[in-house]
Design a protein around this nucleic acid. Structure first.
Lengths: 233, 233
DNA sequence: TTTAAAAAGTGAAAAACTCCATCTTTTTGA
DNA sequence: TCAAAAAGATGGAGTTTTTCACTTTTTAAA
């Protein structure tokens, strides 16, 4: 136990999840939750939640980035969202204990805490404020995915790629210059288009001086024009 | 009061919302909720929840059908979902009292009960089971819209229209033969394509003997082939 | 370090889709 | 019940996007 504690104490010390919890539950309740958590590592490409399976835990992602991936009947993939730590994953399963409708997959090395869903539910049922907080996180996720979806559903590829670049820069890499942890194929699965189309579009944006592409490195040079492309769709 | 009661009593007698509520709250609590409800009619085309506005109520839709409509910066519309009574509308606003991200608009004459959100919240906070029930409805909606998104986000128009026809037949009109309460333009806004494309596709499906189109009347003749078109995308 | 495999990139043909102009039919309201 | 407006339908030109066949570059593993 000591070994476990010392290994993860530095993370736990400023864990955002703990901070959020402690706003609404007591130290003792958090310890109860904490007892059952296991810290776990995932390599790039590893599946954290698997589409079609049931899971009995949430994961609080401490480090790394993940994709929400849906695979259809023909084996084609669609990326629903890209998210970075810190974030709570698996919320869609809190209330309806149905099977996962999509996978969550590490797109770079990740580390997180698995939180037992039954324990969390037990706390939530007995603590209104805590339940409100957890569910607010859940509905926030819903809102952001709707906006994501809307953007993709009725723009042309130029606008969709522009949206994705803006999204990645603002919400995932948090810089105008970033090194992609996604392949061109994955960008295509995010934009709902072909790989070639992604490559052509990125090159066009580069030629137009909107971005600077060099392999996996992308720099957004002209935000305004990129936003204009996003708007005009 | 008597007038009000008598006017709506027949609906209330077998109201599904009341039935759902009474599983988890007492008669008195339901009456408290009921006191503040107002039955309201909406004509086809009228806006029930308006994008960009705050609302302080939910609506339990007793009769009619609605569309979830998102309007973008350029005035283009996207239909996120079509839903029929009975259903509870406005759940996305329970926790986060932010502005509505989309409108909900009647696509045929509707009738429903407006339920005061504050009263409902007050009950929910004091009754865990009731809260669970209401929030389960909310997350169910989330699940079904994700599936909707996925279907639309990476299929070609043939597959998208096939999906829409199957969805309308199964979940909205509940018959293989139905009279559309949507225009071709609205179908296009649901499928994320042009009006002309909808018309062509419907005609092709008709020519191929998959469906029978006659104005607003549509009959699905060959479910298997329609499902095949949906799968092949 | 070499080699095999995966990813990135290219260009052109084919397919899918939109946009436009125009016409017909249906709906709506004075 | 008639006229105006809205919705539906049509076909073709032009654009967007996919698909394919292929080359080059990068990555990972023996």
């Amino acid at each position: 136990m000591d070994a476990k504690m010392s290994e993860i104490s530095e993370d736990c010390f400023d864990c955002f999840f703990k901070a959020t919890c402690n706003k609404s539950i007591s130290e003792e309740d958090f310890d109860f939750l904490f007892q059952s958590t296991i810290q776990q590592k995932f390599k790039k490409g590893e599946i954290i939640f698997k589409q079609g399976m049931r899971t009995s835990y949430l994961m609080y992602l401490l480090k790394g980035k993940v994709k929400f991936n849906f695979e259809d009947e023909n084996g084609k993939n669609l990326i629903l969202s890209i998210n970075k730590a810190p974030t709570l994953l698996g919320l869609a399963n809190i209330l309806n204990e149905e099977i996962n409708i999509f996978s969550i997959i590490a797109i770079e090395d990740c580390r997180g805490c698995l939180i037992d869903l039954n324990n969390l539910k037990m706390l939530a049922i007995n603590n209104k404020l805590f339940m409100m907080n957890v569910l607010k996180m859940s509905t926030d996720l819903f809102r952001s995915s709707i906006l994501n979806f809307i953007s993709l559903a009725h723009k042309q590829v130029n606008g969709r790629i522009a949206d994705i670049l803006l999204y990645l820069s603002k919400n995932v890499y948090e810089d105008k210059l970033f090194t992609l942890t996604l392949s061109r194929q994955e960008l295509a699965e995010f934009a709902g288009c072909s790989k070639e189309n992604v490559i052509h579009t990125l090159r066009n944006f580069d030629t137009d001086g909107i971005i600077k592409v060099s392999g996996k490195n992308i720099e957004i040079i002209n935000f305004e024009r990129l936003q204009k492309v996003s708007k005009s769709g």
